[in-house]
Amino acid sequence: MADMVDELWAWLHPALHAMKEHRRTEPGATWLETRARLLADLGLADADWHPVTRRLFERLDGLPDDDRERLIGGDDLDQVASEVVREVAAAGEPAATGAAGGYDEAAWHAFAIASLPYWNGTNEGWAPFAQWFAHHGAAQGLGAPATGFIEHAEPMSVDQRVALFAQYGVAVPVGAGASGAADGDQAAAGAGHVLDEDTQAVLDEVMAANPSFAQIPEARRMQLVAHVLHHHENA
């Protein structure tokens, strides 16, 4: 049991430290954003994937906001988390299918980084993106984390999803349905879908190399191509 406690604590403690630092440097962050960041640092898309996070969040989620802030900002969080780790080790609870160790984490993060930019940052674009993301993930043997990620992000607002994507290093352009306007180049590319010869050549090349790109909504494909060309011109 002692070995299991040490192993679980070595996995959990650095993420807890990062969460406390996040709350210190970004006091305006919501609990939902902080929660998602902790899960991402642990390589999980859903708290239910591991008994430690499931039990820990059962305690934290049920606290009043002020009490939770005091706990995270003080010295008692480590004690609470340590109690959870010991409970899990004593019970010998297994991680759920799809949790860390149930899939290739490096492959999942590579997939997420490559695929998350295909969301256009709007509520209207979320449903087709979510369906595509889950399907595309399953096709690559990453159905569990991809579906778990979508289920976790589904109840979020646009701004919360943008913050979640940012944890993977993905900057989502703020769409018309969010708190700001889309980037000028992207907005122009998404309107009318009329491409010049060079842009069309780039799109044809991308489509030939990545057939799955055709599953992305057309407006978002135009935005991505425009984004690539914009950076190429300024390189």
Rank of each mutant, 00 (worst) to 15 (best):
G101A: 11
E197P: 04
R55T: 11
A208K: 00
R86W: 08
H152C: 08
T25K: 13
L8G: 09
S157H: 02
E151W: 05
E124Q: 07
I150Q: 09
Q215W: 11
H17E: 00
E93N: 07
A209H: 03
R86C: 01
G177I: 00
Y118S: 12
V225F: 01
W49T: 05
V80E: 13
K20L: 01
A15H: 01
A235Y: 03
M222F: 09
T34N: 15
D65L: 09
V84D: 01
A187F: 07
I72V: 15
H230L: 07
V5G: 12
R221Y: 02
A2N: 15
A166R: 12
V206H: 00
Y118R: 14
M1F: 15
A191H: 13
V162Y: 00
D65S: 13
V158C: 13
E93I: 01
H231V: 05
A208C: 01
P211F: 03
A47W: 00
E69M: 12
E151A: 11
Y168R: 08
P117W: 06
E87W: 11
D183F: 08
R220M: 10
L71I: 11
H231Q: 09
L8N: 08
V174H: 05
L63I: 13
G192Q: 02
W31S: 12
E58P: 05
E105I: 09
A166N: 09
P128W: 04
T30R: 11
L116K: 01
A96I: 06
E233D: 12
N234M: 06
L142C: 11
H231E: 10
R70S: 14
A189T: 02
F111A: 05
Y118V: 10
M1I: 14
Q160W: 00
I72H: 00
E197C: 05
A226N: 04
N123Y: 08
I216V: 15
S212C: 10
L39I: 08
K20W: 03
H231I: 04
L224P: 02
A106C: 04
V84I: 15
D65R: 00
W49M: 10
P173S: 04
A139C: 05
G73D: 03
G73H: 01
G184T: 07
A112N: 12
F213I: 04
Q167G: 13
Q131S: 13
D185T: 14
Q160P: 04
P128H: 07
D3A: 15
A45L: 10
N120D: 15
T97C: 04
A2P: 11
E154D: 15
R35L: 05
G143W: 11
H230F: 11
A166Y: 08
S212P: 08
H17S: 03
R24P: 02
D76S: 14
V225A: 06
G184K: 08
V84T: 06
T53I: 11
F149T: 06
